[in-house]
């Protein structure tokens, strides 16, 4: 069931992306930048930036991740939850 939903979401998403990429060929850009009129510029930028960001963040986490009680009582992170009304 879950697998089915996931797969259909992926397929729909893939179709949208193909559609958007196809539209790209028919839309003229008016930006002052110039280089962004390269075909599929924004598609590539979005995809690569996202992936790069995730990988860099994962690398960063290897360095700076600490247990929740690192700062002890000086921080809210080590407090038990469900204190909110």
């Amino acid at each position: 069931m879950t697998n089915y939903i996931t797969r259909s979401v992926l397929i729909v998403l893939g179709l949208i992306c193909i559609g958007l990429a196809a539209v790209d060929l028919y839309v003229a850009r008016h930006s002052s930048l110039g280089f962004d009129s390269i075909p599929f510029f924004y598609c590539v930028l979005g995809f690569i930036a996202y992936a790069a960001l995730i990988f860099m963040a994962k690398a960063l986490r290897r360095v700076i991740s600490r247990p929740e009680n690192y700062y002890g009582l000086q921080a809210i992170d080590s407090e038990s939850e469900a204190k909110h009304d």
């Binding site: 998403l13 992306c17 599929f40 924004y42 930028l45 992936a51």
Partner: peptide, 15 residues
């Protein structure tokens, strides 16, 4: 279109 491209391809990357 460019905004949607940027966002949807990023979502694609996420997926």
């Amino acid at each position: 279109v460019t905004q949607l491209q940027l966002l949807f391809f990023a979502i694609l990357a996420f997926a």
